[in-house]
Nucleic acid binder design. Structure first.
Length: 415
DNA sequence: AACCCCTTCAACCGCATTCAC
DNA sequence: GGTGAATGCGGTTGAAGGGGT
């Protein structure tokens, strides 16, 4: 049996609101407020409307601070940026655009903005291009970075939902400051002026958390890392999805969580310059250049992957491609990065079994001694990755979020 | 003038979440 | 803690209007 209707459908008017109805509703709400009860409001106001309909009419049309009319370039950028970061969470996006309603923004995106971006794409590679355009549109606008920096991950949902109360969280539109500030991620890419890349800042990479459970561990670890990225909110939502399905996080079940579809979705290409795509662990790759790299180092690859799945020192050899530049970089990630990935390989299958301390020094040394030269010899450029994340395919057990190159680069090991 | 197609956007619907008891 | 009601949210629908033929 379905849910009981909220009102008597036979006795309520539906369809467009008349000016008279608007006047009645507007006068009533301005005089009495909503009384905290939309269901009872139409009866009190003398309207033959469903309470939900009244609420919608008021919120989307009648309330005094509604802004009608065309969207500005800045608003476009904000929408692009947030859509790229968090997807179709229109109420959160609307909270960043005073006077705009979620319905407005949703309609605007679906009918115009998306087409505007698509119009710039060629027919052959729309998906690739729209991602890049989104990233670039987003990078143009509003300095939206690190949207939830400083908040406990578990409180993200609340912070997002309570969109009007941001006292404890950083405003979405407030530009990043301090070591994390960056005019545009593209700037960093072009200039090599990587935040946190100086020697004095290199020690900030690592994880200071003391560890109880993996949840605590990656909350702390990811918070620290992702506070330096544009992708914090994206990854947070991803992690929360996994957290909510903890008991199902076996290797076999990862695909059922839908995680392996994420890389194809626009929202998971956050508005960074990098759009780094992970090709790691997916051999053979569709990319010949990547295959060449992998094939030139089979022993290393096997060594790394076998170590990774053993539950021991989980160093992961990764080959990352920067979609914007076409350059490749090599990385070596430690357990922090593969928390999601490798917890599935733990002998008992428990996600709580993770190594406590990611060891970037060792990882970096390993890179330097074992991987850097072969990488160089293969003719690949190690691209500086100031802030990035990557998403691994599920073929080897799930997804991971990467900080490998960042850690290594900040250690000053790479070139 | 009539018809068709397309775009826009207000409104609806059903589900999820929150709230009150 | 459980339950039902209220609210919030995002996807979808369909009426209205504009432009082209």
């Amino acid at each position: 049996m379905g849910r009981a209707p909220c009102c008597d459908k036979a006795n309520v008017k539906r369809g467009p609101w008349s000016p008279e109805e608007d006047t009645i509703l507007k006068n009533f709400v301005e005089k009495h407020g909503t009384g905290g009860n939309w269901i009872a409001l139409p009866r009190k106001a003398g309207l033959k409307r469903c309470g939900k309909s009244c609420r919608l009419r008021w919120l989307n049309y009648l309330r005094p601070d509604i802004k009608h009319g065309d969207f500005s370039e800045e608003e476009d950028s904000i929408i692009c940026s947030l859509y790229t970061s968090i997807g179709s969470r229109w109420s959160i996006i609307a909270a960043q655009l005073p006077g705009r309603t979620d319905n407005d923004i949703k309609n605007y995106w679906n009918t115009r903005l998306k087409k505007k971006l698509l119009g710039k794409c060629t027919k052959d590679n729309d998906n690739q291009q729209i991602r890049r355009l989104l990233a670039k549109e987003a990078a143009k606008g509003a300095g939206i970075r690190r949207p939830y920096n400083g908040d406990h991950i578990s409180s993200e949902t609340a912070a997002m939902s309570a969109s009007n109360t941001q006292s404890s969280s950083e405003s979405l539109t407030e530009p990043a400051t301090g070591a994390n500030a960056m005019n545009s991620p593209y700037d960093a890419l072009e200039t090599g002026n990587v935040p946190g890349s100086s020697s004095s800042e290199s020690q900030t990479v690592g994880f200071n958390a003391t560890h109880g459970t993996s949840t605590h561990y990656y909350e702390q670890g990811f918070k620290q890392i992702m506070s330096q990225t544009d992708q914090y909110s994206t990854l947070t939502s991803m992690l929360m999805r996994l957290e909510s399905n903890e008991s199902d996080c076996s290797t076999d079940n990862i695909p059922s969580l839908g995680i392996d579809t994420i890389p194809n979705e626009v929202p998971f290409y956050a508005p960074t310059a990098m759009n780094v795509k992970a090709e790691a662990m997916e051999r053979p790759s569709s990319d010949p250049q990547l295959n060449q790299a992998c094939n030139s180092m089979p022993a290393l690859w096997e060594s790394c992957t076998s170590n990774s799945t053993s539950g021991g020192n989980n160093y992961q050899f990764s080959t990352l491609m920067n979609e914007d530049t076409g350059n490749f970089s090599y990385g070596l990630s430690t357990e922090m990065d593969e928390l999601i990935l490798y917890r599935n390989h733990a002998s008992n299958g428990s996600i709580l079994q993770v190594k406590e301390e990611p060891d970037y020094s060792t990882a970096a040394a390993y890179w330097a001694s074992q991987l850097a030269e072969p990488a160089k010899a293969s003719g690949f450029t190690a691209t500086i990755c100031p802030n990035y994340s990557y998403i691994l395919p599920s073929s080897e057990g799930g997804i991971g979020t990467g900080t490998t190159a960042q850690g290594l680069f900040q250690e000053g090991i790479i070139y």
